[in-house]
Write a protein that binds this DNA or RNA. Structure first.
Lengths: 250, 250
DNA sequence: CCCCTGTCAATTGTCAGACAAGTTATCTGG
DNA sequence: CCAGATAACTTGTCTGACAATTGACAGGGG
């Protein structure tokens, strides 16, 4: 795991905790007092607060104060952070397990070669498996990785259900972020069998690309979820426009 | 619209522009130089940069520099910001229109009264409509609002397709954020007819609650999207844990 | 020639203190 | 009782400084 600077990291955790245990709508201590309380400078505190403000969990009003906003009383699975299903299940106290793991080499087709930014006819590692919650299939996950990232043996030996967790464990490649596209689809024949549902039953789909800090694509994954078992949500802020970039050719 | 302080607002815009026109992986100027360039202090610049870092668009490395990351070359519709479909379509240069608007008073049922935090048997305003892109139905939107927020006449007179845009136009209520839960569902009978599709065809569903800055729930909406027409995505950061709050009773 | 090491410049991370700007409650004079 | 001034408190911004980390480069030893 990439360890940030101690101050920044522990400050983030402390603030997170403080916000979590403060009721929605309540006011925080003033910045100078809070900074002293937490043992950091006001500048550092403000930067950390900005993080939570960006996420919509804090509201600052000049001349008045800073207020906590819990967009809902209960937090299920926030999409802003990238975590494996296993980690999420851990936090929620759910029992999940892995069934039917398949690892294989594949030659990339045209579409996947463009997605992974690889030359055609390159070999990749394809990992697929079913996730069970209380012995009921609830998700079907597929990962595609360049072979130089990780070897087949390594997966077979070290795999606990999550490619992400495995990459994090190997401090090897510094991971930055994941771009996730959200859609819905009717179950295909194969997936319907794997999840023990009917063909064309609706599924929630996440198509994700995992980026290293150097901008390289490490993993292309497709996650198919049975609706109702996981509650994915996101906090969207009003009027905080980011300039859209439609740079066609790079 | 709530106008932030000038410095903060214009700095945010300038940075957004700068990032948009910088290629992925490239390095920004150093903080001191950039601060001078933009005419602000380094502290303010750092706070603004933190916003974009939180969104996964910037990567800062101590001793090295700050780098731009575009998780993908093309930006479609980022879910981090809450915008109406009309606004999104505008930005993308799409032609969308509204068909079949229905406005009606309703008595809340038990479920909705809990969602909106209203007493039972209270009246609410229910607004539903179909969104067309190039004359093809692509989305079905439902909104439920407390009647003291907005009147039926106002909707009929001023409505352009978006409840959100209408609330923004009336400077009346300061909006903060929206909590959006994402799922998939098979089309019901009514929605299938409205969208001109078959029953049980898969749909992407957003169930959203809109919060005012005072924490009041302003709007409960359900948005049903035909897959493939809109590309919703989100940037997820690795290892940036927010303390989950599972505060059952409030 | 290669490899190791110390030095040094550049960059981000953090800090302290100050003042500006906005909000709210209180006091004061009419 | 009311209106306006005022004071206290908050967040927003600025300035300057130092610490921590990184990467490159020169120099020396093998």
């Amino acid at each position: 795991m990439i360890r940030d600077n101690d101050v920044s990291r522990s400050l983030h955790e402390q603030l997170s905790l403080l916000i979590a245990e403060t009721e929605s709508g309540e006011q925080l201590l003033s910045e100078p007092k809070l900074a002293i309380n937490l043992g950091v400078s006001r500048a550092s505190l403000r930067e950390a607060m900005r993080t939570f403000e960006t996420r919509g969990l804090l509201q600052r009003k000049q001349g008045v104060g800073t207020f906590v906003i819990h967009p809902t009383g209960v937090f299920d699975t926030s999409l802003e952070n990238l975590n494996s299903l296993e980690t999420i299940a851990d936090q929620l106290g759910l029992e999940v397990s892995m069934g039917d793991l398949q690892v294989a080499h594949r030659i990339v087709d045209l579409e996947m070669s463009e997605i992974l930014e690889l030359p055609e006819n390159e070999e990749i590692l394809h990992v697929s498996r079913v996730i069970l919650a209380e012995n009921r299939p609830v998700a079907y996950l597929e990962d595609n990785l360049p072979i130089d990232i990780i070897s087949e043996d390594e997966v077979r030996k070290d795999f606990t259900g999550s490619v992400l967790d495995m990459l994090i464990r190997r401090d090897d490649i510094p991971l930055a972020s994941s771009k996730c596209e959200i859609s819905a689809i009717g179950a295909t024949h194969d997936i319907a069998i794997a999840l023990e549902i009917q063909r064309h039953d609706p599924l929630l789909v996440f198509s994700s690309l995992l980026f290293s800090t150097r901008g390289r694509i490490i993993d292309s994954s497709f996650s198919y979820f049975l609706p109702g078992y996981f509650h994915f949500h996101i906090v969207r802020r009003v009027g905080d426009q980011i300039t859209p970039m439609q740079i066609g050719g790079k």
